[in-house]
Design a protein around this nucleic acid. Structure first.
Lengths: 241, 241
DNA sequence: AAGTGGTCTAGACCACCGT
DNA sequence: CGGTGGTCTAGACCACTTT
């Protein structure tokens, strides 16, 4: 519980302790946490203080709580990934579940940009994935994804075939990597020849470019992706409040 | 405190009561609320329950709380508007305060689209504003804003001159309209001749199109805007968590 | 019936702000 | 100093889930 500087409130320290145990997989995804009473006794604080910390983690989607059952480390499900990390809808705001087709998957040295975004040294090994995502059966998104190879040993995906699009579930299940936070940076750009070919649009057509850095619970970057979206029939939606 | 259906938790009812008094301007922006103790006594609940409601309102930016001073109805400041409702940054994520120049301001009948977005009848009177927003002195955003005239009587802005860009502050100060929530829908599109002219790009250049509906505390739409952004040197940033 | 989270209360004590 | 919000505790009672 050493803190270096200012003495943080108790509930904040409790929150960090619990977060730490989740991040280091003492309590892996899906695991049931000790009850509020047990945690309070173990940490030497009142139940109310533990509750306050757990409520904060619940609001951040780090744990799930169900009355009568217990508190569980949040697991990525397709629904959760879709809801929190997929912001494309049809023109009326209707949700759609995408599928995807991997075109290329290789282990290669990182470019300067990739290394910078992922906090690696240039030339460090990365997994690079090129894929197309389909919405209502149509190719709408061309995507390049870069992963630090050190955290994704033995990474593989079926290449060439259409599959359910559950990459974050895959990261968690097969590599113990839970995406907790991401930042998207959006711009408009003209379609390159390749992008145009992949998406079935004319070269030079306006595309939405989405660059994302995704981080785990500890705040370390674990994924860098560039998505090119044909927004003829799609919208990227953002709620501000 | 009548509730029609299920008996909501006390703290939720307290939250709604307080929200109501803010929405109907019993407590206008900047006003100091009664202390937790007073509210608890008035509403016949414990201080802890009032606190829980106020904490929720604080997280939603509806009130501001300062230790030793009191709880105040949130006021739109340029900083808050910039932080919550302005998502454009430079390429490195650096924040910038925009200025703006109004090109046209008129009271006109609503188009079908405008009426639909604002929950009005087609042909209802709206204020329509066309303006350009400048970042670091360069025209980067061309914007059309539509307001329901009924809620913005006597609306005026200086036309033609460069000014501080504080529209939401203006709505609140001069028309008692507080924007509490907004939804943006983004797409890429090719620049029209007018947009190209306003932004100093070539016609057909890719622009980021941002459509926004902004709502007040009661959830009623109060503004509809379409922004066309030259993203050559800008990014629209979104934090997901 | 036993165990879990969810709500609500009452009260102590601290930190901060204004006068 | 008195008043405000911020933290922390202790305990009662309820609603839900599982055995």
């Amino acid at each position: 519980m050493s803190d270096g500087l200012a003495p943080a409130p108790l509930y904040a320290r409790v929150e960090r302790i619990i977060t730490g145990r989740i991040a280091d997989r003492t309590w892996p995804p899906g695991h049931m946490l000790p009850s509020e009473t047990e945690l309070a006794a173990e940490l030497g604080v009142s139940q109310g203080t533990v509750r306050r910390a757990l409520d904060a983690l619940y609001r951040r989607h780090v744990v799930e709580r169900r009355q009568g059952r217990g508190t569980f480390v949040a697991q990525h499900t397709s629904e959760r990934a879709l809801f929190h990390f997929f912001h494309l809808t049809d023109l009326d705001g209707g949700k759609m579940a995408p599928t995807s087709r991997v075109l290329r998957l290789a282990r290669e040295p990182a470019t300067a940009t990739e290394a910078q975004r992922l906090g690696l040294k240039t030339g460090a090994a990365v997994i690079r994935i090129v894929r197309v995502r389909l919405l209502r059966g149509e190719s709408r998104v061309a995507e390049t994804i870069t992963l630090p190879a050190a955290r994704f040993r033995g990474f593989h995906l079926p290449v060439g075939e259409e599959m359910q699009d559950e990459l974050y579930v895959h990261y968690q299940r097969h590599h113990g990597v839970s995406v907790a936070r991401a930042e998207d940076a959006l711009a408009a750009e003209a379609a390159s020849a390749e992008a145009a070919h992949l998406l079935g649009v004319t070269a030079g057509a306006p595309l939405l470019r989405v660059e994302r850095v995704a981080c785990d619970l500890s705040g370390d970057p674990v994924e860098w992706r560039v998505s090119l979206v044909d927004t003829a029939a799609l919208r990227y939606r953002v709620l501000l409040e």
